[in-house]
């Protein structure tokens, strides 16, 4: 059964090999002439100010959290979608209730302005 997945593993290593070969193989033909000005990070031609690995806007994390909630929902939905015909009408109603509760959550986030980009 698990042997089905072996070709995937092979493709994984093949793709990694191709990527690495492209990156490494290029070094045989490409020039290497580096100096401080060329290596500086692009900032419209001015000397870069400060470090870029900085703290960022918390807005992104809010989206990440809402995403987590809905991604877990998707996991439940997928496992339900594949068998819901066998489970019958009860499962359908149950899942509709589940989705309704999640919609309430979405509406709450909406009302709170968590989905509003900007402030």
């Amino acid at each position: 059964m698990l042997t089905n997945y072996l070709p995937i593993l092979f493709l994984f290593f093949l793709a990694a090999g191709i990527g690495t070969a492209m990156m490494v193989g290029g070094s045989l033909v490409r020039p290497k002439n580096q100096y401080a000005e060329k290596n500086s990070a692009y900032e419209c031609g001015i000397d870069p100010v400060g470090d870029a690995m900085e703290r960022v806007k918390p807005r992104y994390y809010v989206y990440a959290m809402i995403f987590l909630a809905f991604d877990v929902e998707a996991v439940f939905l997928f496992s339900w979608a594949i068998v819901f015909e066998r489970l019958g009408f009860f499962a359908l109603v149950e899942m509709f209730l589940f989705i309704l509760i999640l919609i309430l959550g979405l509406l709450y986030a909406w009302y709170k302005g968590a989905l509003q980009w900007g402030n």
């Binding site: 290029g26 020039p31 500086s40 470090d51």
Partner: peptide, 18 residues
Amino acid sequence: LATKELIVPTGADSLLFL
């Protein structure tokens, strides 16, 4: 593209970058 120079900017984490 193959014959273009590959530039790793100063201060970059070169392993992750590549």
